[in-house]
Design a protein around this nucleic acid. Sequence first.
DNA 1: TTCTTTAATCGTATATTTGCGATATAAAAT
DNA 2: ATTTTATATCGCAAATATACGATTAAAGAA
Lengths: 111, 111
Amino acid sequence: MAIHKKESFSVKEQSLAEFAKALAHPARIAILKVLAQRNECICGDIVDVLPLAQSTVSQHLKELKNAGLIIGTVDGPRSCYCINWKAFEKFNTEFGMLFNNLKIKNEKACC
Amino acid sequence: MAIHKKESFSVKEQSLAEFAKALAHPARIAILKVLAQRNECICGDIVDVLPLAQSTVSQHLKELKNAGLIIGTVDGPRSCYCINWKAFEKFNTEFGMLFNNLKIKNEKACC
DNA sequence: TTCTTTAATCGTATATTTGCGATATAAAAT
DNA sequence: ATTTTATATCGCAAATATACGATTAAAGAA
């Protein structure tokens, strides 16, 4: 029984979906906010701010890193995370273009 | 064992995450594309285009509808779906604002 | 060296998502 | 009235995601 046929969609569709999935949890949105609000790259400070266990936060950070939305650097015994603005820019405009392209074609909607 | 503490985040964070979740599958991205490319509101035509069973497509449509991204109207024996541009606009700008606000504050990143 | 601190990873429980076939529903066609 | 067509929903199986405690790893401090 073939389950999860995400591969059968276009690369662009998959990549947009991947990006969206990385943002699809309030904790990860909150992490991005924290990372940006402090102009130094925080690591465990996020744990103090979020209502989640250290291991859970670490897991969310890993997902954001895998999606390319943040960059992690090891700094002695601690880890320093930053937002990867390039990736954000890329996906933000990609989303924007998707929406715009759609809208142009769809001036007269039926419902 | 308390699982899923999404409620402990801000309403805005939750709403952004909800929007992202609705987009977090290539099938749903593809559906939105199809809905926009044809200037008539399609229903079962989507099933012909996607590599998924009718029931699965119906389920994805339901999720998009629940998230408010599309509107469904019953038209005789068939259903007519359209993109809800207002919701899209709202979330698109909300995302944009999030990114912009973050970027302004974060001119000097450490990594 | 030993202890402490910081963060990643492992193991595990539970929840949610994804997908399909089968069935139900409802309107149109015959 | 029966059949066809279009779509939603139900029930189930498998895959993923979420969360936590416990453990590991690695650097700095004692």
